[in-house]
Design a protein around this nucleic acid. Structure first.
Lengths: 154, 154
DNA sequence: GTATCATGTAACTTCATATGTTACATGATA
DNA sequence: TATCATGTAACATATGAAGTTACATGATAC
């Protein structure tokens, strides 16, 4: 199963980056991602290797998107975050000679690939831009709702 | 991701049960599953609850299939083994109010379900019987190959 | 009926992995 | 050259899966 909190966490960070017009420090991202700066660097390093973000040292340094959000899909991010294969059955000892494994693999190997392909295809259909837009919409709605509550109290 | 060694492990046990004409003890299954008896009972308990196997105490006791292998699919087993949902993204704190989570969920919620459905559908298409047959075929082939090697040496 | 065998299960330990933390090196800007 | 920010190694902590021990319960053989 996937219970990767990293993808979710990274998305928080990236949306934060889109909002800011300047480099965002690991310290700031750590706030947005509810973790600490070193973990941020660790995770973002993966995205940097995939060319999704850039990092810069020194004064005014920090993290910025390396590509247009319309050109980054959730699949890209998922992979960069260190995407493990979704389905991977296997005995602990990864025994390639095991006949049971072989039989299962023969029966389901294609399925594993198929499921994974579907998953990535869907992730590939959502851009960071689209997600950001939806997020902003929700944010606006949320604010409005809060204001309404305040007015109702008055 | 799924890296469930339990499913694989359980299949070893079940194939073993099919072969034996009598109840198989946890001790014996532990051998087949490369683990220990208590773990076997723990895992098999899940299968028993789903009506896939039966257990009996005392002399001559042990584990037996409760249904015909043609009537047990890998999906049944997968579920019984304590199938976690395949894909489940989420922040650690499972924050339902988080707007980022909401946006992601709105964009991918259906996808998660779709992927899971596909996976289970495929698992559902393979019966324990089919797997056992394939396994036996491989076993025979394997034996033959070993004999050939011996003859070649002579 | 009682000795033996097998499961049922709670409690604990071990192990693997992900995450968090500290410390310090490196590079960039003021 | 002082300060700020990343890079990264090394270590600490937390979580959950798997393994283990111990003992209770139920079933069969004698």
């Amino acid at each position: 199963m996937i219970r990767d909190s990293r993808l979710s966490s990274v998305l928080h960070g990236l949306l934060h980056m889109i909002g800011a017009g300047e480099p965002v420090t690991s310290e700031q991202l750590a706030q947005a991602m509810a973790t600490n700066p070193v973990v941020v660097r660790r995770v973002m390093a993966g995205l940097r290797e995939q060319g999704l973000v850039r990092s810069e040292k020194g004064h005014g340094g920090g993290w910025t998107l390396a590509r247009d959000p319309t050109d980054i899909s959730l699949a890209d991010i998922y992979r960069a975050v260190g995407a493990p294969t979704i389905v991977a059955m296997g005995h602990r000892s990864e025994n390639p000679g095991c006949l049971v494994e072989q039989a299962v693999n023969d029966a389901l190997g294609d399925t594993f690939r198929e499921v994974e392909a579907l998953f990535l295809k869907r992730l590939g259909g959502v851009t960071l831009e689209a997600l950001a837009k939806d997020f902003k919409r929700r944010l606006a709605k949320h604010k409005q709702s809060l204001e309404d509550q305040i007015h109702a109290v008055k």
